[in-house]
Design a protein around this nucleic acid. Sequence first.
DNA 1: ACATAAATGTACTAACTGGTACATTGTGTG
DNA 2: CACACAATGTACCAGTTAGTACATTTATGT
Lengths: 229, 229
Amino acid sequence: MGDTSRKPANTRKAHWKQNPDGVKEDILRVATEEFAAHGLSGGRIDEIARKTEASKRMIYYYFGDKDGLYQAVLERVYSTLRENEDALKVGDLDPVAALSRLVEATFEAHANTPLFIRLVMIENIHNAAYLRRSEIIPGLNRSIIDKLDDVCRRGKDAGLFRANADPLELHWLISSSSFYNVSNKETFSTSFGDTLYTAQGQARLKQRVVDMILGLVVIGYEPPQSAAE
Amino acid sequence: MGDTSRKPANTRKAHWKQNPDGVKEDILRVATEEFAAHGLSGGRIDEIARKTEASKRMIYYYFGDKDGLYQAVLERVYSTLRENEDALKVGDLDPVAALSRLVEATFEAHANTPLFIRLVMIENIHNAAYLRRSEIIPGLNRSIIDKLDDVCRRGKDAGLFRANADPLELHWLISSSSFYNVSNKETFSTSFGDTLYTAQGQARLKQRVVDMILGLVVIGYEPPQSAAE
DNA sequence: ACATAAATGTACTAACTGGTACATTGTGTG
DNA sequence: CACACAATGTACCAGTTAGTACATTTATGT
């Protein structure tokens, strides 16, 4: 036949296999990138279709409309974030080490998933309208609070933590720096240079955030002096 | 004759006054709201024209195209933010009080300008492409760093501050919480409730951020115990 | 006053973009 | 193997939206 050798770039199969789950997953993957890059209104369905193995037709077949696709992307992102949080175990560490680890892990998790951070940014631009509409999301982020609650309890019982340490507040404080580190990287480094965004800068920032949180929570905490500075 | 009395709702004046600066300012005001609400791609030129005293024609006359308008809005926002920072004086306070004041003022300034925060969020979605392209922006945010630098110097000279306190890092740390507080309000309260976004919650958060920063910088700092908790 | 330029109004268009109608192919089931 | 239904391909459309052509009005300098 020699048919397959004609158009190496555009090898549209004359015969195709049905693969609903694969197609859905492929669409979601591409859509996540597109929406993360350009936002909801800036994201182009045609562009998603182009980058997908599937066709535009299939996007509407599985997700209804643009909003439905965005909603699915958002829910998938939050689910993934939850799974990442669940995977973290600090139960066998002493309270101070556990808290320190939680802060580091949160900072690193944010830094490692810039795409997801962008989608949360975008969702905030929409005043969390789609997140609110979601049925699977509420209570999804419970586990990180539970972990902090456990650590706080253990720390207070051991007389190591201040009595007013609050899990929810702590989560907020830890998240704020971890999130901002990714979300505002571009404007910050444009205004102030990228010294904080080199490898050393990031390591130092992470340590500062740990020091800040421990200083707030741990009674009499003394931050380790950074060597030679 | 009798022409002007026909359409009371649409009282387009048969005679108009030229007012270039007023028109420009009016367009920028409306455009700021529109882009802050819907982003660059989501913002509608027609909608801006509708809400303006001027017509769509004038938008293009003064700002060239949509990107030009957005750029002008962005630059205006950054200029305003700079002016706010410049207005803050802490030179006559002792180092600890001065730092405390700087943190509080930053936290409050962010909380009071949600529109501007949204535009910075949006600019970050665009990877600061327009901010970089701007000629008036670089070095615009210098003054807050200078203030922190001055306070750090005085604190270290007085033996009150740790030697490794760094103005740029401090600015980053203070900004992160202050910014996140506004930028992620909607998704955070959707996931975790709005206890942190009540009046008391906000007051407590602000105090926590102050405590964190002072704990990081001031040698032997002890946070004031919140009453009855 | 008058020429000239700046400022504004009105109507229009070309392209983009979300969404759909209709036809076709694969797959499981009796 | 035939039938029903799920999955996919193709072509198309209608509304939206950034941007413009052309005409008109106001201010300004001399």
